[in-house]
């Protein structure tokens, strides 16, 4: 059952008075299933911030519908939206904690808004702070915490009303790699242990790789591609997705790298996409061998995505020309992703 559904959503606005019309989202449709971690990746300006704010009605689309559970967000009045928002938590890049309140006061805020009685509030705040590992900091103020701790408070506050959906707006972009990993671990726990559906937007592939099950790649206000994280990044169909993979894995040689390789390697240069199946590399080596071709790895990288192998290897092939042609033809016939580097 889908938890969040965007149907043909468009959002445009005018920049400044009489300024140009800017299209932030262009005919965006997507579905997020109950209990999954759904990532949206895109460069800044791709429209992801607008997208996530449509889900809790902080922004309204120019056209199209947004559904969360049984509610049509786009049909609700501001008053009715407030009730729905209490079942949707949100965390932010800059944490947006209340400086005027203690850590406990920050976590208690949504409960006060929801009209939860003091005793029950205190009980829940203590449990939440314990969950994020900050129970001993309850009476401190936000400025006394590190960035990672602040985001954990943000997460506790977002979960205070026990929402079924959590929106994460670039939640780790202001954090260093180590704290990013801690916060992402916590988000995974929130999803696993509490069953909370998470929609997170980011510009970092590593964030998607660490926590998301499915991903949408955004480019220029449109969704370029949607699918499981493995499918989208192991076999990108859109240039936007391919760009992110290249940026993160750096396994495929750039034209400059090919030119440099060419200076020191006289044979034919071929890049092979690694497949996640048993014996792939062995089969590859055997095919070259059978055709009397010597294949040496001169570039590439193999990594892991959702516990499956991804990457590519660049070979220099030497041997009889007809042997190389025959080997490449065999591989292509086997469905191997194979690119001969020109130049």
């Amino acid at each position: 059952m889908s938890h969040v559904r965007l149907s043909q959503v468009t959002k445009s606005f005018t920049r400044g008075r009489n300024g140009p019309r800017v299209v932030a989202l262009d005919d965006v449709s997507l579905e997020v299933a109950k209990g999954e971690v759904f990532g949206v990746i895109g460069h800044s300006g791709a429209g992801k911030s607008t997208l996530i704010r449509l889900i809790n009605g902080l922004e309204t689309p120019t056209s199209g519908q947004v559904h969360v559970g049984d509610h049509e967000i786009t049909a609700l009045s501001e008053r009715d939206l407030r009730g729905v928002r209490q079942d949707i938590g949100m965390i932010f890049q800059q944490f947006n904690l209340f400086r005027s309140r203690t850590i406990a006061g920050n976590v208690a805020y949504p409960l006060k808004v929801a009209g939860v009685a003091k005793a029950e509030r205190d009980r829940r705040v203590a449990r939440l702070l314990d969950f994020v590992g900050l129970l001993d900091r309850a009476h401190d103020h936000p400025e006394q915490l590190s960035g990672g701790q602040k985001q954990r408070v943000g997460i506790a506050r977002a979960l205070a009303t026990e929402p079924s959906l959590l929106l994460a707006d670039e939640a780790t972009s202001a954090l260093d790699p180590k704290t990013t990993a801690e916060v992402l671990d916590l988000l995974s726990r929130v999803n696993r242990e509490l069953g909370v559906t998470i929609v997170l937007i980011t510009h970092e592939l590593d964030v998607i790789r660490a926590v998301a099950g499915r991903v949408a790649v955004m480019d220029g206000g449109r969704i370029a591609e949607t699918g499981t994280v493995y499918d989208v990044f192991a076999h990108p169909r859109s240039t936007a997705a391919a760009d992110f993979v290249r940026g993160a894995l750096r396994d495929r040689p750039s034209p400059e790298t090919v030119a440099r390789l060419r200076r020191t390697h006289s044979g034919r240069i071929v890049t092979v996409g690694v497949q996640d199946r048993t014996g792939f590399q062995t089969a590859l080596a055997r095919t070259f061998l059978e055709h009397g071709v010597a294949a040496g790895v001169i570039f590439g990288g193999v990594g892991e995505l959702q516990e499956r192998a991804v990457g590519s290897l660049t070979f220099e092939l030497t041997g009889p020309a007809e042997g190389i042609d025959a080997a490449l033809a065999t591989l292509r016939a086997d469905g191997v992703d194979l690119t001969e580097e020109e130049g």
Binding site: R82, M90, F92, Q94, N96, Y109, V113, T161
Partner: peptide
């Protein structure tokens, strides 16, 4: 006042006057 803080309060479902 940081607009992000206001946004966090709106996201929590608070009324404008509150």
């Amino acid at each position: 006042v940081d607009p992000g803080v206001v946004e966090a309060a709106r996201a929590a479902g608070a009324r404008p006057l509150s």
